[in-house]
Nucleic acid binder design. Structure first.
Length: 617
DNA sequence: GTTCTAGAAC
DNA sequence: GTTCTAGAAC
């Protein structure tokens, strides 16, 4: 209903929403406001007026039966939701629905929280909270600098959104572009409409992805970055904007997770609470994504190979959305009281104890945080209190009671483990007792040298979660952990490559590990070690017994578990060179062969990131 | 996971 | 004779 009494006056710094019942109401409203000053058409279904003194824009949202979407709407506005509003036959009906109201609020929220409170109170009857919605804002991947065809990219975006949108529960996805005339937004919008994708769960938005809340009133807890492969600031576009807006905190947090990214992959980085993006915009995570590159001027150009390109772009969106889902899942594990506070903006969080980022759950999985607060706290705890690590493990755990008991201990998969097989488990549970052996200590993982390396360089990335003895225990909810383990392993491989660029690394898990506690092998492919002594040693790294980390991650993403089969048969297979595939009668003969074999690695290994090599110079 | 060692393979 | 494997014990 047009609320004419609200029309004449708009205080400085305030915005107002006017609910219109029908086209006539909208026209009348626009007319009334036009009388007060020039009115801009901001975008489809949305009009605005810039008040130069107030520095805030007034918006009038139009809710009608069906609005044709013009792809080009010139405007000087900063940002505005780009159509895709819920549509219904009666505007009042929409107004009564929380989701529509959220859209309204999001569309024209003002700059300061105080102001938006006033906005809500002044113009909207019911107080409907939008706070419980978790939102991922993402730019179109690869269509800008990487010159990926917009038409094809829009198909893939819509396809992937459609695939994930039903898994979101109370969350949503927003495709963001800086410009109003954005071709990709227009294409995606049209195609999403055609496929009847729920516009409450997915819509497009015009605005700066680093100012969605402060300038556009759209609260996005998670934003995606179209990153470069080195995960470094600079370049241009979204990457430069996000790194600049997030400050050094993002660079540091990113470095802890990964040093580089393969095309088609994504890495979730929790944003430290001192980052301006966190304090100003309420962004808790940045997900770096690397898409395929079609630009010959940029590294790893695919030379217009759209077969590969499409497959990598699909992978990129899968990784991005899966990363987002893992954030949702870890949030949903928070106790109710905390999750209720989750969507509070940082401005609302006067009491740091209310900040969910400062909490650990009581469940058997810690909510991983390496932002300043928690990291500092956990470090302090380690010094003061030996129970820190025990706090992480499950109080309700029924296995793995670490006592002096020499008897075999049961793990979660009820496999029995000899006392000798518990060494990694002990390290994972009590890293403070093994400081000298550890190369790196992070919230979720530890890095250490394998005690009996089977190659010149052989590291282990050890999960710290209790209850994960091996791959068999890994499920969908561990996806984020697997990605962290991979990223940390990759980081170390690259560090070692820096010291010796002739090395080649492979990252993977043993199908049936001898040692309890999930660990990722990062192993150089020279296999030049006196500790490699028998057929089992060789085959555990050079048959299907060795499961590449990238493949395991894919399997968990797609099927929720890793395929475990034929573990024993792999270990007794004939001995074959991992490069030229020639067979050898015994270990000494094989070893003398691999010391000289220069054959290229098999295609299956060279493709899809199974091997980590130094970049070609 | 390693070490030890009997016995098979050469 | 030596070399190498594979199973038991830890």
């Amino acid at each position: 209903m047009l609320q004419k009494k609200e029309l004449p006056k708009l205080n400085e710094g305030f915005a107002r929403i006017v609910f219109c019942h029908n086209e006539n109401d909208v026209e009348a409203t626009i007319k009334a406001y036009t009388a007060l000053g020039p009115l801009d058409t901001l975008s489809n279904g949305c009009f605005g007026q810039k008040n130069p003194d107030a520095k805030i824009q007034l918006g009038i949202m139009k809710f009608l039966k069906k609005v044709e979407a013009p792809s080009n709407v010139g405007s000087s506005s900063d940002s505005v939701q780009d159509s895709a509003y819920p549509q219904a036959s009666d505007a009042n009906n929409i107004c009564c629905k929380g989701t529509a109201k959220e859209s309204l609020l999001l569309g024209v929220a003002s700059k300061e929280v105080k102001e938006s409170e006033n906005l809500a109170k002044g113009s909207v009857d019911d107080d409907v909270s939008v706070d419980e919605i978790t939102t991922l804002a993402f730019p179109s991947i690869s269509t800008a600098d990487f010159q990926f065809n917009n038409e094809t990219a829009s198909d893939i975006i819509v396809e992937k959104v459609e695939e994930f949108v039903n898994k979101l529960e109370n969350a949503r996805l927003v495709l963001v572009d800086l410009t109003h005339g954005s071709k990709i937004l227009s294409l995606v919008r049209t195609k999403a409409e055609k496929r009847n994708i729920d516009s409450k769960k997915f819509f497009t938005f015009v605005g700066n992805i680093t100012q969605l809340y402060s300038q556009g009133g759209l609260r996005c807890n998670v934003i995606a970055n179209a990153a470069n492969w080195r995960l470094k600031p600079g370049g241009g576009g979204v990457n430069a904007a996000i790194f600049t807006a997030a400050g050094l905190a993002l660079e540091t947090a990113t470095k802890e997770r990964a040093n580089s990214l393969l095309p088609g992959h994504a890495v979730v980085v929790p944003l430290p609470s001192d980052s301006p993006l966190y304090t100003r915009e309420g962004v808790s995570h940045v997900i770096h994504v690397l898409g395929p590159n079609m630009n010959p001027q940029r590294p790893n150009s695919l030379n217009n190979d759209y077969n590969k390109g499409c497959s990598i772009l699909r992978e990129a969106y899968t990784s991005l959305f899966t990363g987002f889902l893992s954030i949702l899942r870890s949030r949903s594990k928070l106790p109710r009281r905390i999750s209720e506070k989750l969507a509070l903006t940082p401005l609302d969080l006067k009491d740091p104890s209310l900040d969910p980022r400062n909490h650990l759950t009581n469940s058997d999985q810690k909510i991983k945080r390496d932002d300043g607060c928690v990291y500092e706290r956990s470090k302090k705890c380690k010094g003061a209190n030996d129970e820190t690590v025990a706090d992480i493990s499950a109080p309700s755990s029924t296995y793995g009671k670490v006592t002096g008991d020499k008897s075999k201990l049961e793990g979660p998969t009820s496999k029995t483990w000899g006392s000798w097989a518990q060494a990694l488990y002990h390290i994972a549970m009590h890293p403070e007792k093994h400081k000298d052996e550890l190369l790196e200590v992070l919230d979720d993982v530890l890095v250490l040298n394998d005690l009996y390396p089977k190659a010149c360089k052989h590291l282990l990335v050890l999960a710290r979660h209790e209850g994960l003895d091996g791959l068999v225990d890994v499920h969908q909810e561990h996806l984020q952990l697997l990605m962290t383990m991979h990223a940390v392993g990759l980081k170390w491989a690259e560090k070692l490559l820096h010291e010796d660029s002739s090395m080649v690394f492979r990252l993977g898990y043993h199908l049936a590990p001898s040692m309890r506690q999930l660990h990722l092998h990062v192993i150089s492919q020279d296999f030049n070690s006196n500790h490699l002594k028998n057929k089992k040693h060789w085959n555990s790294f050079n048959t299907a017994f060795f499961r590449d980390s990238v493949d395991v991650i894919e399997e968990i993403k797609n099927h929720g578990k890793a395929t475990i089969k034929d573990e024993d048969s792999q270990l007794s297979m004939e001995l074959r060179c991992h490069r030229c595939r020639s067979a050898h009668p015994n270990i000494p003969r094989l070893k003398s062969h691999i010391s000289i074999c220069q054959a290229p690695f098999p295609h299956a290994l060279l493709e899809n990131g199974h091997l980590v090599l130094a970049p070609k110079t």
